[in-house]
Simulated assay, not measured.
Amino acid sequence: MQSINVQSPQSQKNKATPPKQSNCQLKFDYSPSADGIDYNLLILFHGLGDSKGPFAQLGKKLNLPQTASLAIQAPEPVPYMDGCYQWHPSFDFLTGDLLTPENPARLKGLLRTRKLVTELLEHLINDCGFETPRIFLFGFSQGGTVALDAALFGNIRNLGGVISISGYLLEEQRTDKKIDNGYGGYILVTQGEKDEVIGNRVKAEKKFQEIQRLCSPDALSTQVFISNKDHTMANSPAEWRIIHTFFAERMPRRNLQLENMSDVYLVNP
């Protein structure tokens, strides 16, 4: 017979234990939820050549209810550019040109980053008290690639959701290889119709299909094209409305009014 645990909703912990920088190699800025209830966690990944600071401010500005935020800084500095970071090697040291998919350094660097992200996620789950389905990832461009990689290829299989702004998987990643327990959460990818970095709509749709191949049948994935936008961070009311709708529909929330009723109890197996 299965045992059950009955408890008062008031006994639920509102504040998560803040993550410790000493437990992780990746640098980050953490902000608890403004309303005092750290039920969800939003992890933000900046784009190529940026740093964690602006995305830490974005996490605060979003002010999502019952949601703490954590902005991560990419592990590698961009050569010859102070204060700029990359998630994997991106430039040729000699010419300064962007590396192509044929260069093995890109994927090797991404695999190194995946291990570091996994280390941080395990700390957040095991030591800080965040539950995996309530952890959501948000990334721009190369940061979107890392967010998708963590959810689709990482060891932690049931993250809550991913938003990627103008970011897809690396071209050299194997999406035809069968992965047990494909990702079953929520994915939103937005990109500009004038994004010359990603390519035209046909190319973008093919990249999105690569993502869908790594999802389980239960996953809900959406790709949205934004008119009159190039390869930039979300910057229009229309795009932010799509993003906020994703958060509102996909992020769970505690019903505080119900919890405060004295005759209501939580029953957990």
Rank of each mutant, 00 (worst) to 15 (best):
K206T: 10
E131R: 07
A234C: 08
L137G: 10
Q7G: 01
I179Y: 04
G167F: 06
F247E: 04
N103K: 08
I125P: 12
N23W: 12
E102Q: 14
A16R: 13
L148Y: 07
S11V: 05
S236G: 05
P237G: 07
N268Q: 10
I198N: 14
S236F: 06
Q212R: 14
A150W: 01
Q57K: 10
L44K: 01
A16C: 09
N5Y: 15
E249M: 08
Q191F: 09
T132M: 10
R201E: 14
T232E: 13
R250W: 09
V146A: 06
V224C: 04
V189S: 09
I226L: 11
A151Q: 04
Q57N: 11
T232D: 11
E102T: 11
I163A: 00
A147E: 06
L111W: 11
N155G: 14
T145A: 06
Q10C: 07
A248I: 06
A151P: 08
R112V: 08
L137S: 08
Y168A: 09
L48H: 13
E119Y: 00
G139K: 05
D97P: 01
R254K: 14
S3R: 14
Q209L: 08
D176N: 07
G144M: 04
R112A: 13
Q191E: 09
T100W: 00
Q86C: 11
V264S: 00
F138E: 12
G83R: 11
D230C: 04
I226V: 13
M1R: 03
Q86Y: 09
E102F: 09
E210M: 09
I156N: 11
K27E: 14
P77E: 12
F93C: 00
H231I: 10
L44Y: 00
T132Q: 14
R201S: 11
K60A: 02
D82R: 11
T222C: 12
G36L: 02
Q86S: 10
D180G: 02
N228K: 14
L169M: 05
T145D: 01
M81K: 08
S8F: 02
R250A: 01
K203G: 00
Q212L: 02
W87I: 05
N181H: 10
I211M: 01
L188P: 13
D127C: 03
L120V: 02
T190A: 03
R241K: 15
R201D: 10
P32H: 02
L214V: 00
Q2V: 10
Y186R: 15
D35E: 02
A16E: 04
D97E: 10
D230H: 03
K203A: 13
R253Q: 15
C128W: 01
R114H: 13
Y39R: 03
I211R: 03
Y168W: 04
A219E: 04
P237D: 05
